[in-house]
Amino acid sequence: MILKKESIKAVIATVFLSLVAIAFVLPIIIVLFNSFKGQFYISDAPFVLPTKETFVGIQNYINGIQKINFISAFGYSLFITCFSVFGILLTSSMTAWYLTRVKTRVNTALYYGFIFSMIVPFQMVMFTMSKIANLLRLENPVGIILLYIGFGAGMSVFMFSGFARSIPRALEEAAEIDGCNPLQMFFYVVFPLLKPIAITIAILNAMWIWNDYLLPYLVIGTKYRTIPVAVQYLQGGYGSRDMGALMAMLILAIIPIVVFYAFSQKSIISGVVAGAVKG
């Protein structure tokens, strides 16, 4: 009898969770079917499925891709995200290891400087930073990578340092006896050991940079639009926007994220949790 009662409870819980799951997916499904409707049939009746007269096929996608040049926006986003993450991983891990191994007053101050930057909201530096970026001719997809390396340094150095401290010195001493110079030691001995935390840091930074709006908008937004900047650009004036194209571009913006998630959800979830718990 008790078993029966438990299984009824389990059924109720599963039904409930299924309803919540539907509620979680529904907004995206609604955007999806609206992306196949003519632009004037969307705002007033977003919950109505496309009918014969409102269905426009992939016309919205064609319009949207042309209007905001989605292909190049995707290219910029991909380029900036990949190289910034690569740059952050390389520079922050080297700096973090150095700062945990060479203890001087300057280094300690630097370490706390990096940590301090984690609590400063972007609005505090956005104006001055974009002016300096302008002055230094960093307003292009390569220059912005330098800014991301600087902004990413806080969290990344902090997380790498925490991990680097746990690496046994004996390994490094053995490498030294074998005649390694510090660079060889870092790349052959230390960096492979940092790999688990490097994956976490890569995921956290990739999610941040891929979705970031303000920094690319302020620094390179007039010439080079990343995906979030392009989506916002499409919105334009409130009255004049093309709802169909907007729906289509939202879907195109979500697809890369869903694909990425489908392939690496385990490391994404564990990475995000590790980041939350440590940061």
Binding site: N107, V125, L147, G150
Partner: peptide
């Protein structure tokens, strides 16, 4: 080791520090 490593400041720290100064420290001040 510490002593040898210490001389490598320009390679290990300077690039990060430069980016950090441009993107954060100078704009902050």
């Amino acid at each position: 080791m510490q002593k040898t490593l210490k001389r490598y400041f320009p390679i290990f720290v300077a690039p990060t520090l430069l980016a950090f100064l441009i993107a954060f420290a100078i704009p902050f001040i």
